[in-house]
Amino acid sequence: MLKRIWKARSGYLFILPKFVFFTVFVLVPIIWSFFVSFQEYRIFGTEWVGLRNFRDALQDDLFWMAVSNTLRYAVVVTPCSVAIALILASLIHPLRPGAQTFFRAAFYLPTVASSVVISMVWRWIFQTRYGLANYFLSLVGIEPINWLHSSAWALRSVIIMAVLTPPGVGVILYLAAMGSIPESLYEAARIDGANRLMQWWKITVPLVKPTTLYLLIVSTIGSFQVFDQVMMMTQGGPGYATTTIVHRIYNVAFRDFEFGYAGAMSMLLFAAVIVLALIQSKLVSSDAEYKG
């Protein structure tokens, strides 16, 4: 065995540099995260507190507020962005290659600008007196809305921003998936007299299902981690109206320095993400079998 390892030593040497960083910044934090959430951090050393951090989290109104805000965000943003990606890709797909490239770029461009930049400009668009949003509303005779400073609208504003920022990644992935659907399927459907909408619903939508599943999972995980937008637009406010789970973790850990408590919330978030991903993949795949 040792001889085999020695003979293959160059294989290990090539991995070694990456593995050092991987160990220090991935493996160690993963292992450490288990300990952190069962400890309380004091100025002088740490103390084991068992499950107390988890109990505290589950009894903390602010944590549940953050969970509810995050859920409300995810429940709207995930389905909307996947649906919009599917619709946009379906409309782009029949175009000429040049036009395809143009629209693909137009819808991906806001994605390459960082979420910080996008959030900053939306904060300005949502400004109550001089913002673009209220200006457009005034054109159709709607009274100005106090977007970011009212607890009724603040979270909705963040959601509106997320929905109106085009799902560039989704469009690209759907276009790739649609490009690999054999043309003969559509021809057969046409001979059977199916119109375009039926072709889309019976052929395109079922055949891009793997992409849909992938996007749903990635987008759910993404919206469960929403932070940048909230931090830049509302700081979680007014009050706690837009606090999300990651924003709460950030505040608890790096403003209040309660690492153990923040660690416990991180574990709960991770568990939620895993469970959701599993449920979604079950739901979508059983649906596919059902339709046969």
Binding site: F22, V24, F25, V26, L27, V28, P29, I30, W32, S33, V36, I221, F224, Q225, F227, V246, I249, Y250, A253, F254, F259, A262, G263, S266, M267, L269, F270, V273, I274
Partner: peptide
């Protein structure tokens, strides 16, 4: 480990 969202590891990462 790619399945673990980075945000989950913020606290231990900071400690490292």
């Amino acid at each position: 480990t790619m399945t673990i969202p980075g945000q989950v590891l913020l606290v231990p990462m900071f400690m490292v």
